[in-house]
């Protein structure tokens, strides 16, 4: 399986003033912007004495400088550029470098690919979305995706929206994505979902089978888009899932609940999962999803990707 692109930060989190530490599973990554404003990513480990580069600083010329002994690296190649007090001896053999990762930025996300020579096209997001956030969830990446499939309400919080267990369309593969549509209700006094004849809104999710990156679209029964969100779960250290998201509210909103979505905080990824509810959540869509994800994974050609394998 080719190494995927992971959305490891929101664009505004990556600056040229302070390096940002993120991780993809057990691989620590440091992000910053160089002098041209281009986002750069290196392994967050100085090859000199293994200190995290993210505890250093960004120099005026865009190099990242380790805060321990001051070694400086160029972000594009990872090459060592400067050791303090070495004066005019600043030419280093090519092995003097930190592991560099491929970086791409669009749609307000910064993505990295741990395979610097990846042939996979960087992800395209349709347009910039003004809202955004990051949630840290103490739940493994696969489990987080399964919860999203079986009960989005455990991991997502959309103001006034109640997710029902009723699917409008089963999970299926569509252009390489896992797509499903779920009925939702507004959170007001109404018949319980099992006794409701009609549902006012639906949530469509389109999920990348490898990364779990999901576009979620909330629509009303007149086919108006109320909310669009891009949600990117990334496996982080110690089994934590870091979820970055962006969202935008639809232009045409009818009804008080829909209009209420315009208020601040109408979309969020939950920081905590109700473990008691999660434990007894009956697998449904996720059962099929796991099979499909497995099939898609095994069909793809294997490509080595991890840094440690390459080093």
């Amino acid at each position: 399986m080719a190494s995927p692109w992971w959305k490891v930060a929101l664009s505004e989190e990556v600056t040229s003033t302070k390096p940002l530490a993120v991780d993809v599973a057990d691989q620590p990554v440091v992000l910053w912007r160089d002098a041209q404003g281009i986002a750069r990513a290196l392994e967050d480990r100085c090859p000199h004495r293994r200190a995290p580069l993210s505890r250093g600083c960004v120099r005026d010329n865009g190099w990242i400088q380790c805060g321990y002994h001051g070694w400086s690296y160029d972000g594009e190649t990872g090459r060592l550029k400067d050791i303090p007090n070495m004066k005019d001896e600043q030419k280093f053999p090519p092995v003097y470098k930190a592991a560099a990762f491929a970086v791409s930025e669009n749609g307000g996300f910064v993505s990295v690919n741990l395979d610097q020579k990846t042939l996979l096209a960087p992800p395209a997001v349709r347009h910039d979305m003004p809202l955004g956030g990051t949630a840290h969830v103490a739940l493994g990446h696969d489990q987080w995706i399964s919860a999203l499939f079986d009960d989005p309400g455990l991991v997502l919080d959309i103001r006034s929206v109640q997710f029902t267990p009723y699917l409008m369309s089963d999970l299926r593969e569509e252009n390489g994505l896992l797509v499903m549509e779920r009925f939702c209700q507004w959170g007001k006094l109404h018949w319980p979902s099992y006794a409701t004849a009609e549902f006012p809104i639906t949530l469509i999710t389109r999920t990348d089978p490898e990364t779990g990156e999901t576009e979620a679209v909330l629509r009303d029964d007149s086919f108006r888009t109320l909310l669009t969100a891009q949600v990117a779960p990334v496996p982080a250290a110690r089994g934590v899932t870091q979820v970055r998201w962006r969202a935008c509210i639809g232009d045409e909103l009818k009804g008080s609940h829909a209009v209420g979505l315009r208020h601040k905080g109408s979309f969020a990824v939950r920081e905590t999962v109700d473990a008691a509810a999660l434990r007894v959540l009956i697998p449904s869509a996720s059962h099929l999803a796991n099979k499909l994800r497995e099939d898609i994974r095994s069909a793809a050609p294997a490509v080595p990707s991890s840094v440690s394998a390459a080093a």
Partner: peptide
């Protein structure tokens, strides 16, 4: 400690990845 604490677990196992060194080391 802000450096040696994160550094320490990275030396707990023998690693095939060599440290880089300068003449100050």
């Amino acid at each position: 400690s802000s450096m040696t604490n994160p550094q320490s677990p990275r030396y707990m196992d023998l690693s095939p990845r060599k440290d880089l060194h300068s003449r100050f080391d």
